[in-house]
Write a protein that binds this DNA or RNA. Sequence first.
DNA 1: CGATGATCATTA
DNA 2: TAATGATCATCG
Length: 226
Amino acid sequence: MQLPQHPPASIEELLERTRQLAGLTLGELADLAGFATPENLQRHKGWSGQLLELWLGAEAGSKPEQDFPQLGVELKTLPVNEQGKPLETTYVCYAPLVNIAGMSWEHSNVRNKLSCVCWLPILASRTIAPAERRVGSAFVWQPDQNEEAALRQDWEEIMELLALGKIESVTARHGEVLQLRPKAADGKALTDAIGEQGQRIRTRPRGFYLKKHFTQQILDKVFNDV
DNA sequence: CGATGATCATTA
DNA sequence: TAATGATCATCG
């Protein structure tokens, strides 16, 4: 098996690639790709995601776009435990904190990123070394009406608070399925935001994340026919 | 700095 | 023990 030389031309080709990876360990995939496998992920937090991007032919980089622009598909690896439950929240995208007055859900980066996602579960309990973590069965998901409505409601509520200058009072507890949390290299990273009096303030950058129970419901629907 | 890939680790 | 808030690596 070898690394793809080009992005998949269709969703079917993408899924075919994921089927060939299912059941293999990350260590095996790293060896085949000439990738070094870290002992732990403390200093390699993005390692598994980047390894799978490589194997599926996604473009590397930090562009605020989907991983497979020509397919309109976003790739998300999802760490799960032995019961198939998500171990972590899922990062969606950076949150805009200024110039957000005229933004709409329809044109939001969150909606764009989540309009079509290829979920790739990884059996990744912390007791399992990175090399032994195993790739599961991928599937392509698009939010149904209820899911989109829930995402939209959370997004609109959070964005309104940001627009009203209440960013410092928004915590990860806001939102049923989508939450806003810090997203930065460290506590010293600062960006512009709107303050209580409408003035410009400096604050820690934020990102949107999917709560675990939301991704768990997505998994339940496809694997347990719930 | 902003954005990607995320997981870590302290605390509630 | 789970979740929140913090952090790590890399790229342009």
